[in-house]
Design a protein around this nucleic acid. Sequence first.
DNA 1: TGAAGGATTTGT
DNA 2: CAAATCCTTCAC
Length: 214
Amino acid sequence: MLDSSFFSPALHPIPSAKPIEAAWLGRCATEVAPDLLGCTLVRRWEDGRCIRGRIVEAEAYTPGDPACHAYRRRTARNAVMFGPAGFSYVYLIYGMYHCLNVVTDADGAPSAVLLRALQLETIPPEANPRNEKPTRVAAGPGKLCRALDIDLSHTETPLKPGQSLWLEHRSPDLTQAWEDGAIAVTQTTRIGISQGIDHPWRWYVTASPAVSKR
DNA sequence: TGAAGGATTTGT
DNA sequence: CAAATCCTTCAC
């Protein structure tokens, strides 16, 4: 039975689940991105405090994709995307926001999945200065990082339990819901880019109130 | 060494 | 629609 809290605008605890391994991420970003919907991002602080968010929106950036930061060549900033899957890639955008990616695909194939929106289980008071609706606090890649206090110091983090960031698989009830086709997913074009605009490489949970844009 | 521009967000 | 704001990239 699907936990109805998945679509609820209120805050609900998210149960821990099996951690996602690097090998699972070592596939094409266009496969991984939709598979990450319904999975959980865990942010752990030095003091051991953790906050979880359910991924409801993601975009894929692939080798040969002109919108990918690694399209032109390997640089200091994008180097992690050229390595093996299972690491974070965080960058600064427009001088004021950070964006969190999950590095995917084989070693040497520069690609990643941009995490664009989460449904949070709890909201740190300092993470919501404008007192937005809880479902909107992590609606958008910049807001997601602001909510979870993610910045450039978090790039190239191995995504494993005990680190500052890791991923967990869908809970059993959500896995069942996906198998049943009970969760509608929308696939469409990516946001904010000027090249590669025709690739339909953005996926989001259709009914989620936390999706950044429609 | 400098200039242009960006996988965003917000308010006008 | 334009501002905020600064790092990265590429040209000179």
